[in-house]
Simulated scan of single mutants.
Amino acid sequence: MPPECLAEVREFLDRLTPWVATREDIVGLLLVGSYARGAARPDSDVDIVLLTSDPASYLTDTAESGSTWTDRAGELGLGRPVRTRAWGLITERRHTLASGLEVELGIGGPQWARTDPVDPGTRRVVTDGARTLYDPRRALAALVRRCRP
């Protein structure tokens, strides 16, 4: 993996993680996939699970408060989404940064991280590689522990 790609991912995560910590509705942030397990290639996208008490506000582009997801994505340098697709308890919002790096935000509610029982899709995501970025309630830590062999 070229060092400039890793640096760009680090810079993005360094913007995202503190921003998440300022949002009362966000209950967890998990880096998953190849970057989480240290096996990213130049064509790898950055896969993130964002858990919130208000998933709908991240899945629509209008909000009563006037702060839309598009505005939030702009704050993070994500631009407009390229694709939105539902995957069970998670809805993917895929973005392409100006550099071409793809970021897939999997947005869902806290129930995605439940451990009794662990959803089979959640287990696959976590066992494929997971690194906790923000977990004030320790729900993601419990999930990762539960999914370890």
Rank of each mutant, 00 (worst) to 15 (best):
R138S: 09
L59C: 10
L30K: 01
R41K: 14
T17K: 11
G77E: 06
T17F: 12
R85M: 13
D71K: 08
G109K: 06
P117I: 01
I90H: 01
R123I: 07
T17H: 10
S34L: 04
T22A: 12
P2L: 13
I48H: 02
L78P: 01
P2Q: 14
W87V: 15
P55S: 12
D71R: 09
A86P: 15
T127F: 06
G28R: 05
I107V: 15
I107Y: 02
A63F: 12
R93C: 07
T127Y: 07
Y35K: 03
D128M: 09
P55Q: 11
T17L: 08
A63P: 08
G74D: 12
E11I: 00
G109Q: 08
I90R: 04
D128Y: 06
T62M: 09
C147A: 07
R23A: 04
W19D: 01
R10Y: 03
S67P: 00
R93T: 03
R80F: 13
V27A: 07
S57L: 08
P149N: 12
C5I: 12
R85I: 11
P110T: 11
E75Y: 15
R41Y: 06
A36H: 05
S57E: 08
R72A: 14
P81M: 10
P3A: 15
Y35D: 03
R72H: 14
D135H: 02
P18F: 02
A141M: 07
L133C: 05
T52P: 03
G88A: 09
D25A: 10
P3L: 11
C147Y: 02
S99V: 02
G38N: 01
R15S: 10
P120R: 14
E24G: 09
R23C: 08
T62N: 10
T70R: 13
G121Y: 00
P110E: 15
T22D: 10
S44R: 05
R145A: 10
D119E: 13
R93P: 04
A142Y: 01
A86D: 08
G129W: 05
A139S: 15
D119M: 06
L13V: 04
D135I: 00
R145W: 03
R23K: 13
L29D: 01
S65R: 14
L89Y: 09
D54H: 14
E11L: 04
R114M: 08
G79D: 08
R145V: 06
E24S: 13
R145S: 10
L50C: 03
W112Y: 15
T115S: 00
R41T: 09
T96K: 09
P3Y: 11
P18Q: 05
T68S: 15
L6H: 03
T127S: 14
E75C: 13
S65A: 09
G121K: 07
D43W: 12
Y134W: 15
Y35M: 01
R137G: 01
D25I: 04
W87Y: 14
V49L: 06
T70D: 11
L76D: 06
V9G: 01
A139I: 09
A21G: 15
T91F: 08
A39C: 08
F12V: 02
G108E: 03
E4N: 11
T127W: 06
R146T: 07
A98P: 10
G28D: 06
Q111A: 14
V118K: 05
R23Y: 00
S53F: 11
